[in-house]
Design a protein around this nucleic acid. Structure first.
Lengths: 354, 354
DNA sequence: CTGAAAGCGCTTACAG
DNA sequence: CTGAAAGCGCTTACAG
């Protein structure tokens, strides 16, 4: 539902106004002020006169008019879901990178929100009405069928996408290795009974962490105990509840020696549940997170976790998107359709020698 | 520096294209699809035909063209400073509210960032080039002279502004009372030697918390000890350093019984400094924060703090701004120029009976 | 009740 | 080297 309703107040000065004042055509002003690749050559003194007139009138080019002819708004969109109206830390870090990247390239960024990813296609259609030049999909969970032909007239880039989308480069990190490294660290510290609080079933990222967990166990000759592998939503609340329930249902001597959580927020909930039963971290049980978001540094004890370079990924997403928009993509990117960033173990205090 | 460069690909369908297909004029299509207040009446069946044609062509109105004639983009801007490239928790909560408010009113929000507030005026000039209809200034620190005539052709609303800006409504919360309540709580719990880690000198919000602190002390008949009042930047790092230094310079028996920090992040740094010297919170000393941001819930112990309704304030900022843009402001708002939200004590575990 | 025209502010060919 | 014209896609008066 559009809401056309004019802004009040006096008209802003236009190119013509400046031209009038400087005694030249609007076109000349355009050429001087927004000096494009045109072959126009205007004498230094006229240029000076034009600039002076523009300054005096406080002329600002109207971006909508320029966009209309250039078909370019110089603004990119970000699409995210606001689950439970909370922006999470993952988003905070990524967004930070996107903002920084956009600033570098003189682009603005506008934020589009979704309640669920099922609305994505519709929202995309609406967003691509000339107000943005491209979109960054943040951790989308899309149905294959929705993505058909999506990228055709809508330049997109995705971060941690759940599906491959034709024509859309996806940025991800080596989560399998991150998980493998973390669980291997736990093993090296003498833990053998290692629990994994995993992300939702079916999500690519969650599955990758699970497989890293399994591989590390296998490599250490530890048999997988299915009762120590729990899938749930990526939230501290879910982790807290699952962990509390587990503690009620199991005898104290069944307690795992270490718990690897699929993200930092979950680790938080896990620690809280443990604490509420009088179980200390890391004295009684080691706990690790994933992502290295803000919380990891401020918990007590500080979380041992796996860092994904989320901010850098945000920066890179912008620059890839811009290439896509301008139509000069790197061939390598076009082929692979996916770029993976390294993960890195961040050792703090929550995982200790057994 | 503009970057005009055409987007590739085929032209999107226009009103004329739809009209052609439906056998009517572009104007008729416009009237049906974007049904404004025009007196146009079109027969039901023609309408149907038009809608069908639009759907088949996947017509989407071009927002830049519409904006050009309407002088309205239906997007609002937010202006913030990215200090040290970190978006903080304060921003996260406020931004969340802004997003939600904008969604309610069918507006988009675009984010403009500054390195320092001294760039604000210039950035505002650039932002108001037709791409946004209004701006929300988030915690601006402006010089009086910069604000002259600012609001004339740039509808703005501010949150926690440091100065009154003519024509700009400022949303704030009753920080003086919040601080007063917190310090009074400490007094009620038997503390008399109460330290205040304050925000930067000269900032309105910081000053208000200080005066609440002083008033509570006075009302309790406790004489102000200037050595227990320290001003610093609003960050955990500064609080940590100041507190560490204080601990080194003062004998252990000079330790305050309670410490009221000007925000949650500072409380965090304070707790860390204390902990690193073997001083336990809250057993040895009570600590309180301010803002009730995410961190307050996840520290150990959870922080007793003062809640400002940041999210609600974000929502309200949007709706006030929209009124301002549409030129139908409430008279009361125009007069007061400032709206104050209530603060609320949030009692958790970091402040205990002495 | 419907359509042709003008115009929003800019830029890009194209003439002089 | 400079200016007049056309057009980007839409909406708003204004004629029929």
């Amino acid at each position: 539902m559009p809401q056309p309703s004019k802004r009040k107040g006096k008209r802003a000065p236009t190119l013509a106004d400046v031209g009038l004042k400087a005694g030249v055509s609007a076109m000349a002003v355009s050429a001087v002020l927004n000096g494009s690749n045109s072959s126009v050559r205007i004498s230094e003194e006229t240029q000076e006169r034009i600039r002076k007139a523009a300054a005096e009138l406080r002329y600002r080019p109207n971006i909508a008019a320029r966009a209309l002819v250039n078909r370019r708004m110089n603004t990119i969109g970000t699409l995210i879901v606001l689950d439970g109206l909370e922006l999470n830390h993952y988003f905070l870090e990524v967004f930070n990178g996107i903002i920084a990247g956009a600033a570098q390239h003189n682009q603005n960024v506008t934020v589009f929100t979704l309640r669920t990813w099922s609305e994505a296609r519709e929202q995309l259609e609406r967003a691509f009405d000339g107000r943005i030049d491209g979109m960054i999909l943040i951790a989308p969970i899309l149905e294959e069928e929705f993505t058909n032909g999506m990228s055709a007239d809508m330049p997109c880039v995705s971060l941690h996408s759940n599906v491959g989308i034709e024509g859309v480069v996806n940025l991800e990190s080596d989560e399998e290795k991150g998980a493998y490294d973390m669980v291997s660290l736990m093993v090296a510290k003498g833990h053998r009974r290692i629990m994994h609080l995993a992300g939702p079933k079916g999500l690519l990222g969650a599955e990758r962490r699970i497989s890293g967990y399994k591989r590390a166990l296998a490599d250490a000759g530890i048999e997988l105990d299915e009762t120590l592998l729990k899938s749930m939503a990526y939230s501290d609340e879910h982790a807290r509840n699952v962990m509390k329930k587990w503690l009620q249902e199991n005898p104290r001597d069944a307690l795992p020696e270490a718990i690897f959580c699929a993200n930092d927020q979950m680790a938080l909930g896990c620690v809280e549940a443990l604490l509420s039963e009088g179980i200390r971290v890391p004295e009684d049980v080691s706990v690790a997170g994933f992502d290295d978001t803000l919380v990891a540094r401020v918990t007590v004890p500080p979380l041992t976790t796996v860092r994904q370079p989320l901010r850098e990924m945000g920066v890179e997403a912008v620059s890839l998107l811009l290439k896509r928009i301008e139509g000069n993509e790197d061939d390598s990117v076009g082929k692979t359709n996916s770029i993976v960033f390294p993960t890195e173990l961040v050792v703090r205090k929550s995982v200790v020698e057994r």
